[in-house]
Amino acid sequence: MKKWQCVVCGLIYDERLGWPEEGIAAGTAWEDVPEDWVCPDCGVGKSDFEMIEIA
């Protein structure tokens, strides 16, 4: 399970936790998050996230 960070606003996507309130189940790998998903804080797309660490 990895963590990804939005390079624009710093928001972190943690694969272990997923994003249940946005319909992304806990344990969802980043590659399985829909391509049209955007950062809830700043509106950037998946291409502007980067991996910050491997937990």
């Binding site: 606003c9 700043c42 509106g43």
Partner: peptide, 11 residues
């Protein structure tokens, strides 16, 4: 509108 937030800036 002078919005000092990231989302409008990205738009």
């Amino acid at each position: 509108l002078n919005l000092l937030f990231v989302m409008p800036l990205m738009a």
